[in-house]
């Protein structure tokens, strides 16, 4: 039950993009079409869960016992960068079909701040391993949900008459503002 609440909170209430303002670069940069938005969503989910697990073990069994938590930033970003490399090599060699779907988005993920942000959130909340995994999936799907919502909205405004003043990125942010208003309705839902 608590895990379900945690999941809903990560997915909707504290949506990583619309409420926590992370991963905005890819959110505005990769949502011109719904297809790539879904591909990058899967890639992020994959790396997020892996990163969540690996950093949990590092944090609980290395950093905290040795009093080295001040090195977290350095170590977590290196873990994510190497994970992305490893996943890319593995997928290309072993599962070409999956690589075809999300492989091309992997290199972009290292600087996706949602992943590093997630590892910090897991660490600061003091989650258990299971909680970290549930939170990682919730955050990743929340990210994918926001990406898909925006990508589809952008499809629809393509042929509509946007005021010239707001054409381009500005209208994307105005749409996001409206999405954020809708997501604020979830506040207080899971606690």
């Amino acid at each position: 039950m608590d895990l379900l609440k945690l999941f809903i909170a990560a997915l909707l209430v504290n949506n990583i993009v619309l409420m926590r303002f992370l991963a905005l670069c890819s959110y505005v940069g990769m949502t011109a079409e719904p297809g790539p938005a879904l591909g990058i969503g899967w890639a992020v989910t994959f790396v997020m869960v892996l990163a969540g697990v690996v950093t949990w073990f590092l944090n609980v069994f290395v950093l905290q016992p040795l009093g080295l938590t001040f090195l977290s930033t350095l170590i977590f970003i290196l873990v994510i960068a190497s994970l992305v490399q490893l996943v890319e090599i593995y997928l290309r060699k072993s599962i070409p079909s999956l690589y075809h779907v999300m492989g091309i988005y992997l290199p972009l993920i290292t600087t996706n701040c949602a992943i590093l942000g997630l590892t910090f959130i897991n660490q600061r909340e003091g989650f258990t391993l299971i909680q970290s995994i549930v939170n990682s999936i919730g955050v990743a799907w929340g990210y994918t949900l926001a990406m898909l919502l925006l990508a589809n909205l952008r499809q629809r405004i393509k042929h509509s008459n946007v005021p010239k003043f707001l054409d381009g990125y500005p209208i994307v942010f105005i749409l996001t503002a409206i999405l954020a208003v809708a997501f604020m309705g979830f506040t207080g839902m899971a606690k």
Binding site: F21, L166, P170, V172, F173, I174, T176, A177, A180, M184
Partner: peptide
């Protein structure tokens, strides 16, 4: 609140 951030940056970029 969060929506205001998106709204403000949209207008500012415009």
């Amino acid at each position: 609140l969060p929506p205001g951030a998106f709204f403000a940056i949209g207008i500012m970029i415009a």
